[in-house]
Design a protein around this nucleic acid. Structure first.
Lengths: 236, 236
DNA sequence: CAGTGGTCTAGACCACCGA
DNA sequence: CGGTGGTCTAGACCACTGG
């Protein structure tokens, strides 16, 4: 057998994927039940169950207790968009990462910001602005507010050595995060520090992280459109 | 027990997640072995194994055969970025989707395009350009090339009724896709049809889909930066 | 009611790692 | 070599669905 290296549950998964991607089983169609697959492959139910459970995790099938397993409605084109620490990301490309600190201080939160961080208006918050460079070329303008309750030692960090992201991952372990990506034009200050023209398009990622009971941080990361993109891949 | 509703493997997962997110187990630290957890929870090894396997799938731990299970190095902030059919996405917001067809024809591929689609230079390809509107407001400029071998009936479709994405999902079931997101300025034509100013920033998503042996389609989707963003959420 | 999936057990054999 | 994880079995009980 050519596929003898593939474990039994993998063979079941491959069998089902083949039928789905070939189109012979359409969305909404029932997938053979666990007991049928057991006999067909001469394996135990636990093994079939694992195959189907993993396929559900991958979004290829839907399972309904008491009813059956079905081909998922429309194959979502989806992918894990990993948001890594910029330091590690640059290193992974074999390049050199460095950072310039434009601002690192404690200030009073505006009403808007306080609401976003779940604090009362006028509360003290930490504010940092950094430029991240890859081989000396600016690639990210990081404007971040941090909740002192989540990371009291934030401002004591040397941000040319440790990125805010890394500090926060250690000090305020992540329990939840949300983000959005949009396109924008840079402010004059951003354009200057990113070394781009005022009219150039930029990518902006807003990131909000929660650690335990606190909203730990909100950040706006601005990337020159000409030097950065988010990429991903998807394989069923 | 308050958590008696949670299945046994879920309790093991919760136990480990608690220690990781509380910081009592740091990245690189070993997680108790399967046999230890078996005894600690008085459950069978299969059940412990499932808990640890799922945690690895979620990126929280690393497992090395013969060595052990360890807390993953840095909690990736990652999230499934779902790329849905624009028609469904607009409908899901309770709005009305419509489309204008600017171009739908067969043409000869340039050398570049042919290479991208895995065809010989000068081969016939289908080319469509559409504007997608949400409640009458333009939100996406879709410029797409399709490999005729993957979807021979593509041009016969009424794209005011069926989106190219949907047609392709049915005709050329997806086996792989990759994308990248970047910021750009619109061309004069794009600005006109999207009803935005020439200097406005836009989000552009390049998408390349593979169906079986064929590269099915490459598309460039341009969104007005002021009217669209990609958002996601992440929970460990 | 019969059939489905959700969960779990108590074993088992194997490949691999590190001492 | 003992300990680790990777896989698998042949049962079991349960909750749920549908006719």
């Amino acid at each position: 057998m050519a596929s003898s290296a593939l474990p039994a549950y993998g063979q079941v998964k491959a069998f089902i994927k083949k039928h789905i991607s070939a189109g012979s089983w359409k969305p909404g169609d029932p997938v053979p039940s666990e007991s049928v697959l057991m006999q067909q492959f001469s394996i135990s139910r636990m093994t079939v169950n694992r195959a189907l459970r993993e396929l559900m995790g991958e979004g290829l099938v839907t399972r309904v207790q008491g009813s059956g397993t079905f081909v998922a409605e429309l194959h979502r084109i989806s992918s894990t968009l990993a948001i890594r620490d910029i330091h590690e990301e640059v290193l992974a490309r074999g390049h050199v990462h460095s950072a310039r600190v434009l601002l690192a201080e404690s200030e009073k939160a505006s009403a808007d910001l306080a609401r976003t961080l779940g604090l009362r208006a006028g509360a003290r918050v930490f504010h940092t602005i950094l430029i991240h460079l890859e081989n000396g070329v600016p690639i990210q303008y990081e404007d971040r507010y941090v909740n002192p309750a989540a990371a009291p030692n934030y401002l004591a960090t040397d941000f040319t050595q440790t990125t805010p992201t890394r500090h926060l991952l250690v000090e305020a372990p992540l329990t939840e995060a949300s983000y959005s990506i949009e396109a924008c034009r840079p402010t004059a200050l951003q354009a200057e520090h990113l070394d781009i023209k005022a009219g150039d398009a930029c990518l902006a990622m807003m990131r909000r992280t929660v650690s335990g009971a606190h909203i730990a941080s909100v950040a706006r990361l601005v990337y020159p459109g000409s030097r950065y993109s988010f990429a991903g891949k998807f394989q069923p």
